[in-house]
Design a protein around this nucleic acid. Structure first.
Length: 1165
RNA sequence: AGGCGGGUAGCUCAGUUGGGAGAGCGCCGCCCUUACAAGGCGGAGGUCGCAGGUUCGAGUCCUGUCCCGCCUACCA
């Protein structure tokens, strides 16, 4: 009897979000490999705040995560953030510009310090957003792609790939952003059609015999031309091949990349790649500033002349134009060319222009020296194709754990096969005098097992169970031995006798076997339940044995929807090497140290050091967290700075927890470990000059600073310089699915949680991220990074346009949460997620689902207000369930099944709509209304409270509401948690840890379901005619019925009260003849006569029925045509013909009814 | 240029091996009935882009075609 008041999403969402985090509800320290379910979040960039696409992505993952958790899986969902190299640097730089500061003036070290100050702020903001959204991530596993562990992982990955020859440094043409002054990968360039100009320029032949005209869109690059190319087949130019032209304007000597002088006289060469039908068929060749020209230049050994610098300004090779910005140069060059008559013509030309995905600056193709990852190498590509195309089978040695528990006469043995294989097997051997064994799930009786011939214990088992469960909460197993109830968790059963039974979990099934005639024989399948052995271990002696097994594993990545598979494979087919170096500061610096003496490229990682603290200091230097020359104080400060990792974790904490926590490499000596774990790492002590520092550090007495000694592997020189470039952000993101678990350390997380089970992401980053995770995962880990990839659509605005800040059409998730609540936001996004289509979203869409939340709230209010606090104790039922109780329980059961099925297929929309429909239409619109007759019943004279029927109704209301909440919980975690916690029948830390309802055979009441559906039709047809007659609901009418079927008669008698209430009648009597002053309607075979006094709008009603009659006639026409076709009857399957006949019969009846009503109306008129 | 997705009610979209065209929102009518007007009850509304074909039967399969969106490639 409590009224929770009005629905206030802000209050409850804040409350539970805090509660879940404070109680670490979603943190699992040691997930069980048998039932683990791991997901890694696509890490949002630390550049700003989350947009609606993130909300969609996170919501879908959370729906699956919560659902899986409720299904008994050990869900670990790892959250984290991406350092987003260029993007972050861009944003921070922009901020600095506002303050009038410049990155270049600041210098690398100072600038990075700024970024490190900035990152925690945005990281915190995004974290808050995720919390508000209610995602059930494990915050204690939070990671950052630039944290301590990732830096190590990146260096390790780089080293492995480098040493295998898969990473190389080379001078090639790359996409260059003059604004950000860095190279970009092909994927980071966005192409768009733009209006431009095509200039036709005359290049005079050297011998003065005329000219050749070339067409170009970028005349400024002519300064770097080193040839003119024509197609060898081109008759127009055949005779010119081999001759030379003189480059207009250029009357100076240029220098190529090697410093050789290049004259303005350049050759006319033949190359089949030149298209004869474009422009003039002759093309100027600028090997340094065009990808195609680059190839031609290479193949023909042309000189490479660079005419622009990193900023997009013309360099010294541009002679009089040097120092000009590229577009100014273009204008200047065209003007002069025109003046001097070199321009033959100009015309408008549409062509696609590449722009930097970040700052939208036009990309300049430029020759430069970069690092590349040879993704096209078979070692990487072939497996990445195979694991998606057809999967691969591998044989692996896995560890197996056998556990035995012994208690008196009871033996339980559990065989656990390592979760990686996906195979688990649990065996329970029951010996002794067992009357029954009951298994429970979340405080509910899930199954009871009786040895044969003792089924009479059923009721006793239930009674005992309820008694027990009220006293003590949620037992896992109950075993009754010789009349004594024993709960495994609580104590030790007594008694010993013969007879053995076995409960075997086989896949999803729980099968019962008995031991007869010296062998096990199958008895029956039990309803499968989640079985935990942990509680058993606490009180019972457990023996664990480890074995090794050869297991065959199938690794296959499945894309959902399937079409993304082709999308991925097509891209993989012609893969170009990946430019992984970036000329920016924010990111993972390439772990290469160039020897300034011999030029050797040394790759170093902390593997090169044996001792933990040396590794640590090396990492700090390589990460740029301390300078190459440092003091112990600086080391101490870096070690204790939380900003480098996350909220409440310093670098040191990080090392303790992740890096050398459990599975440290064997070459770490004992004293280092002790130093690390028994006392805080003390840089002062560590760096005291002495034996331990010899050959590792050098001390400069003048500066009082230390330096770590690195030696060139080739010439032992100490004169090394670390590579300035950093790695493409996606290089580190590619390591995400194993980096987050501590790779390259062999942590227990890595062993149990990799590969992950699911990745949820948008299609826009399949190439950027998904493909690269697959490449790195299969190569470095030897196994796929995830089993399923669910690819969701992009969120667009109501017009179908991409949301962007500049267009001003963005929907801010925080605003939506504020206005409509996170539950409404989540449910909306889930309900709109259908496979293969973008989501068009307008704010209006959230409103409807907020109404749904409100509906849930009010339904719960109705239940709570009417439920006595002690309801649970009144069980078992005092009165039997009514037909409508069994109907709603059946519908609930059907809904549980549907939602599960849809979620299994990642059919988010259908899953959401199934529970929506059940809750609103079945539960609220019908069941609650039907329940009021019992719930509001006052005790009759002589009757005592509580009224048994009323209690049964309330029991059912509570039962159904509670289960419905559990089905709803993955979609709407906050409101369901709030209500669930208020229900008297629930108990537990969180609804999210309760069991997701499984369909149960003993809750299928087909007969009652059909009966109530019939009742609904009857009531609706009365309501319909009332509405047709515009009779207001408050007016109660008299009505009569005439029916030929005894079943209908029975139905009406059984539900008479409901009919009176819901159809708003004050009398409903049987009749043989049509009473005067009535109009009739039909519900199935039953005719209902409604007494209508006063004026009735006959015309209006006549029109309605005329229309209905016409509709019936047209449908009848269709069936008649079909059925009269001889071919149809002969060729169509008999059941289809039969169905069509049935339809026709029904329509004919409908027609008769309609005509009768129309006749009646005429009479009245 | 190639590929993918889509064109079904006013809007946003479902439509499962081919077998009586659906939902939500919006709209119309009646109602503040003690969970909820953020609600209840009832109702109207569609040649399933177009044209062929296969079939007894096509929103669903095939061919062609027209729009819209996206991706990849080329663009001197």
């Amino acid at each position: 009897m409590k009224d929770p008041g009005q629905y206030d999403h802000k209050r409850i969402e804040q409350k539970w979000s805090k509660y879940w985090i404070e109680r670490s509800i979603y943190h699992l320290n040691r997930p069980d490999p048998r039932r683990k379910f791991s997901i890694v979040i696509p890490p949002p960039n630390v550049t700003g705040s989350l947009h609606i696409g993130h909300a969609l992505n996170s919501t879908l993952q959370d729906v699956v995560a919560r659902w899986m958790r409720m299904k008994g899986r050990d869900v670990v969902w790892v959250p984290g953030f991406d350092h987003a190299g260029i993007a972050t640097q861009y944003v921070v730089e922009r901020e600095l510009t506002k303050e009038g500061k410049s990155r270049i003036e600041m210098g690398r070290e100072e600038f990075l310090k700024k970024v490190w100050e900035w990152v925690p702020k945005t990281r915190e903001a995004i974290r808050t957003q995720l919390e508000k959204l209610g995602v059930s991530v494990d915050w204690e596993r939070e990671r950052f792609t630039l944290d301590e562990g990732f830096s190590r992982a990146v260096r390790k990955a780089f080293r492995v790939l480098y040493e295998k020859g898969l990473i190389y440094k080379g001078t090639y043409i790359v996409n260059w952003c003059p604004k950000d002054q860095t190279a970009l990968s092909d994927l980071e360039v966005e192409h768009e059609e733009e209006e431009g100009k095509l200039w036709y320029i005359k290049y005079p032949l050297e011998d003065g015999s005329g000219h050749i005209t070339v067409a170009t869109t970028r005349p400024e690059t002519m300064l770097g031309d080193t040839a003119v190319a024509v197609n060898p087949e081109d008759e127009r130019y055949k005779n010119l091949i081999g001759k030379k032209v003189r480059l207009p304007l250029v009357d100076w000597l240029r220098k190529d990349l090697e410093g050789n002088e290049v004259k303005p006289e350049i050759p006319i060469i033949a190359d089949p790649r030149v298209k004869m039908d474009f422009g003039t068929g002759a093309v100027k060749v600028t090997p340094c500033h065009d990808p195609n020209d680059y190839q031609i230049g290479r193949d023909h050994n042309l000189p490479f002349v660079r005419v622009m610098d990193e900023r997009g300004y013309m360099n010294e090779n541009a002679g009089e134009f040097s120092g000009l910005e590229r577009y100014d140069a273009r204008k200047g060059i065209v003007d002069i060319l025109r003046e001097q008559g070199f321009i033959e013509k100009e015309k408008d030309h549409k062509h696609s222009v590449g722009r930097c995905y970040r700052c939208k600056t036009v990309i300049e193709p430029m020759v430069s020296t970069q690092w590349f990852l040879k993704v096209s190498d078979p070692a990487i590509r072939e497996r990445s194709v195979k694991v998606v195309e057809k999967g691969e089978k591998r044989s692996e040695v896995k560890e197996i754990y056998l556990q035995y528990a012994e208690v008196g006469g009871l033996t339980i043995s559990l065989q656990v096969v390592d979760g990686v294989s996906g195979e688990t097997k649990a065996v329970f051997q029951l010996e002794g005098d067992i009357e029954f064994l009951a298994g429970t799930r979340e405080g509910e009786l899930a199954y009871i097992y009786y040895p044969e011939g003792r089924k009479e214990n059923s009721q006793r088992a239930k009674d005992l169970f309820y008694r027990f469960s009220n006293e003590n909460g949620q037992p896992e197993f109950i075993i009754a031995l010789k009349g004594e109830l024993t709960i495994i968790r609580m104590g030790v059963p007594s008694g010993k006798e013969e007879g053995r039974f076995l409960l075997a979990q086989e896949g999803e099934r729980l099968n019962l076997y008995s031991f007869e005639n010296e062998k096990w024989s199958y008895l029956k399948e039990l309803e499968a339940g989640r079985t935990r052995l942990e509680p058993v271990q606490k009180s019972i002696k457990v023996r664990v044995e480890k074995e090794e097994l050869n297991i065959e594993k199938e690794s296959k990545i499945v894309f959902i929807p399937e079409r993304w598979k082709k999308f991925y494979l097509d891209w993989m087919k012609d893969l170009k090497d990946w430019c992984i170096s970036r000329q920016i500061w924010w990111g993972h610096r390439i772990p290469i140290w160039h020897c300034l003496d011999c030029g050797h490229q040394n790759v170093f990682t902390d593997d090169d050091f044996d001792r933990v603290h040396d590794k640590l200091i090396f990492n700090l230097i390589a990460d740029g967290k301390i300078s190459e020359e440092f003091t112990p104080e600086e080391v101490a400060s870096a070690l204790n700075s939380p900003q480098f990792v996350h909220r409440n974790m310093s670098v040191l904490d990080f090392y303790k927890r992740f890096v050398y926590h459990r599975y440290h490499s064997t070459d770490i000596d004992e004293s280092s470990l002790r130093l690390l774990f028994t006392q805080d790492l003390n840089p002062m002590a560590m760096l005291t000059p002495g034996v331990s520092t010899k050959n590792v550090y050098s001390f400069n007495p003048r500066t009082k600073k230390w330096r770590m000694i690195l030696r060139c592997r080739n010439c032992s020189s100490e004169n090394l310089k670390q590579e300035e470039d950093v790695l493409d952000t996606w290089f580190s993101s590619a390591l995400w699915p194993f980096g987050v678990f501590g790779w390259p350390e062999e942590t227990s997380d890595l062993k149990t949680l990799y590969p992950t089970d699911l990745l949820v992401t948008g299609f826009d980053i399949i190439f950027f991220w998904v493909a690269r995770m697959i490449m790195m995962g299969t190569y470095l880990m030897g196994d796929i990074p995830f089993d399923d990839v669910y690819v969701h659509a992009l969120v667009r605005d109501e017009k179908g346009q991409k949301m962007s800040k500049t267009k001003g059409n963005v929907i801010d998730p925080l605003e939506i949460i504020e206005k409509y609540g996170a539950d409404a936001l989540r449910f909306t996004l889930t309900a709109l997620t259908v496979q293969g289509r973008d989501i068009k979203l307008s704010e209006k869409r959230f409103e409807g689902f907020k109404h749904f939340a409100n509906k849930i709230w009010n339904a719960a209010r109705y239940v709570l207000i009417n439920t006595p606090e002690n309801l649970a104790a009144d069980l078992p039922l005092m009165a039997p369930l009514s037909a409508e109780d069994r109907w709603i329980i059946t519908r609930l059961n059907e809904t549980a099944r549907k939602v599960s099925e849809h979620l299994e297929n990642y059919d988010f929309s259908k899953a959401a709509m199934s529970i929506y429909e059940f809750f609103w239409s079945d539960f609220c619109d019908w069941y609650i209304e039907l329940s009021k007759e019992r719930v509001y019943r006052e005790p009759a004279e002589g009757e005592e409270e509580p009224i048994p029927e009323k209690i049964t109704a309330l029991y059912t209301l509570n039962y159904v509401l509670e289960k419905a909440l559990r089905i709803l919980h993955p979609f709407m975690p906050f409101i369901t948690e709030e209500i669930w916690q208020m229900l008297p029948s629930t108990d537990g830390d969180s609804i999210s840890l309760a069991q997701f309802p499984e369909p149960r055979e003993d809750e299928e009441f087909a007969e009652d379901r059909d009966k109530v559906e019939k009742l609904k039709t009857l009531i609706s047809s009365i309501r319909s005619i009332r509405s047709d007659l515009q009779i207001e609901p408050s007016k109660k009418l008299k009505a009569y019925y005439r029916c030929s079927s005894p079943a209908d008669e029975e139905l009406i008698q059984e539900f008479k009260n409901h009919i009176l209430n819901l159809a708003r009648l004050d009398e409903f009597e049987k009749t043989e003849e049509k009473p005067s002053g009535t109009l009739s309607t039909f519900a199935g075979e039953t005719e209902v006569f409604l007494s209508v006094e006063g004026e009735v709008d006959i015309d209006r009603l006549t029109k309605t029925y005329d229309k209905r009659k016409e509709k019936i006639l047209s449908e009848l026409e269709r069936t008649r045509r079909k059925l009269s076709s001889e071919e149809f009857v002969r060729k169509a399957p008999p059941e289809v013909v039969e169905k069509e006949r049935k339809i026709q019969r029904e329509l004919e009846e409908e027609l008769i009814k309609a005509e009768r009503i129309l006749g009646m109306l005429k009479e009245v008129n």
